[in-house]
Simulated scan of single mutants.
Amino acid sequence: MDNGLSKAERTRQFIIETTAGIFNTKGYAGTSLSDLTDATHLTKGSIYGNFENKEDVALAAFDYNLSKIRKQIVQRIQKAANYHDKLMVYAQVYHSFNGASFPTGGCPILNTAIEADDTNTLLKAKAAKAVADWKKDLNALISGGIDAGEFKADTDIDRIAYSIIALIEGGIMIAKITGHPVNLDRVLITVESLIVQLKNN
């Protein structure tokens, strides 16, 4: 934690970091106030002194979980030499979705989208924005690759971007539901093939 933060900010950050894995694993509806107090060893008053309600904590936890993934992606993209390698980062990062650096409980976008569909508009909006931002980032990389002459000029940018997202999120769902991470790895090979096909040979 950042020592430059005030005591209240540090407490708020502690609550977010401590409960993020619980919300991502059990979901918003499945996470109780006692789960939060047990994990943080704080009182109900301490938690609600920093957040309006349980939903407010869940929204902050979603942002925290998403930021963990985005940080890894951004760091790797900055090191990539070309647009092909930058796009490949997405397949590489999600290969390790069961690793220690990935949020506990898996992909927060998938978990939140499935649970919040039509039941929690604020969480659903968070998941929708995350997908929109992801698509925007992919569009920028694909467009950059086209402009640099790396990718074919007639590439359907939106189709490729949505396909990459759908394959990754669908692969995670299949891996989780079957209990076999190798099933995601199989799907990520398809993501890699899709990216290779963009190359302007």
Rank of each mutant, 00 (worst) to 15 (best):
T43P: 12
G170M: 06
H180V: 12
G30I: 07
L123A: 02
G49Y: 02
V74E: 14
I77P: 00
V182I: 14
D2M: 07
L110H: 06
F62M: 10
A80D: 07
D63I: 11
F151M: 07
L33P: 10
T43C: 13
Q72K: 11
I16T: 01
K126E: 10
D158Y: 08
G105E: 03
N82G: 07
S101K: 12
V191R: 01
Q72I: 00
F51T: 02
D63E: 15
L194S: 13
A153L: 13
T119S: 10
T155F: 10
I69T: 06
K124P: 00
T31K: 01
G106M: 00
N50F: 03
L167S: 02
A61R: 04
Q78M: 13
G149D: 12
N111Y: 01
E192W: 10
R186L: 15
G149T: 09
K124G: 06
G99S: 12
L198K: 06
F151D: 04
A8Y: 10
G27N: 09
A58H: 06
T37E: 09
T37M: 04
L184K: 08
T43I: 14
G106P: 01
E55P: 04
N82E: 11
A140Q: 11
N111Q: 03
T119E: 04
E115R: 03
S46W: 03
K152M: 09
D154K: 04
M1S: 13
K135C: 09
E192T: 14
G149S: 07
T37P: 05
L167H: 01
K129S: 08
R76I: 01
N65K: 12
T25A: 10
W134T: 12
A81M: 00
V191Y: 09
R10W: 02
S193C: 13
I177M: 15
H84G: 05
A81C: 00
E9S: 06
K26P: 11
Y28E: 08
L184R: 01
T119C: 02
L66W: 11
A128E: 08
S34W: 11
V93W: 03
R10N: 11
I172P: 02
L66Y: 14
K54P: 05
L36Q: 14
I164R: 07
K68E: 07
K71A: 15
M88R: 12
E150K: 03
Q92V: 10
Y83K: 05
Y48E: 01
A113N: 09
G105W: 01
L42W: 11
E192I: 08
K79L: 10
K126F: 09
V74R: 13
K7D: 15
H95Y: 12
F51L: 08
T37L: 11
E115C: 03
Q72P: 00
G99C: 03
H180I: 12
N50C: 15
D38M: 15
I77Q: 14
D85C: 00
A91E: 04
D156S: 13
A128Q: 07
I160V: 15
S163G: 13
G27D: 03
F97M: 04
S67Y: 08
D156R: 14
A60D: 10
L36S: 11
I157M: 09
D158E: 14
V57K: 03
K152I: 15
I109R: 02
A20G: 06
L122V: 10
H95N: 13
K54S: 03
P108T: 08
A29N: 12
G144M: 07
H84S: 11
R12A: 03
K79G: 06
M1W: 08
G99Y: 02
S193Q: 15
